[in-house]
């Protein structure tokens, strides 16, 4: 099996590994780097559970080989709360019951992180359309949509964070 040297920056840390050419980016993250927050729900590019950011844009890590990420910067769910402090979006998921089993959640967070970066003032329709690439079987999406809109508002500073005056 062809092996290839790969250097990837993941959540701000640089990793150099020699990997099978056919190893997917998802398996590389999960099993080589032990970053198991990225999940696999279909391995055929529909469910979005495996979504990560590659050079700042969302990508399906099940449809990418690790070697294709050579020289790239990858952000996974573990990179959203590096110092253990949940991000505004993550906190909004708690407050709006945006998750049940939590399996789709990492992918949801990555997709919405991209959306909120691109569109600080999204409409409900914007959020729903952005989420069409992520399936959730548990929540019926209501809490996720509410969390995204809530987070957008908090990030724009129009609503105080809970606890602050």
């Amino acid at each position: 099996m062809g092996k290839q040297a790969t250097r990837v920056m993941v959540n701000g840390k640089s990793y150099a590994r020699v990997v099978d050419a056919r190893l997917t980016l998802a398996d590389f993250l999960r099993h080589e780097l032990n970053l198991t927050g990225t999940h696999l729900g279909c391995e055929h590019g529909v469910c979005g559970a495996c979504t990560v950011l590659v050079d700042g844009r969302t990508a399906r890590s099940c449809l990418m080989f690790a070697v294709q990420a050579n020289g790239c910067a990858v952000t996974t769910v573990e990179g959203l709360a590096p110092d253990g402090q949940l991000s505004v979006l993550q906190q909004a998921f708690i407050d709006n019951h945006g998750l049940q089993c939590g399996f789709c959640t990492p992918g949801m967070l990555m997709t919405l992180t991209e959306l909120l970066g691109d569109t600080p003032e999204p409409s409900e329709q914007d959020v729903r359309e952005a989420l069409t690439g992520n399936l959730c079987r548990c929540t019926g999406y209501a809490g996720i949509v509410a969390a995204a809109l809530d987070a957008a508002q908090r990030l724009r500073g129009t609503v105080a964070k809970p606890g602050s005056p």
Binding site: V77, I94, L99
Partner: peptide
Amino acid sequence: VTRLEDPALLAGRGRFVDDVK
């Protein structure tokens, strides 16, 4: 009450079967 389960799952620290090494 907001859920006690949420913080770990949101931080990517859930423990599903495939996460057990």
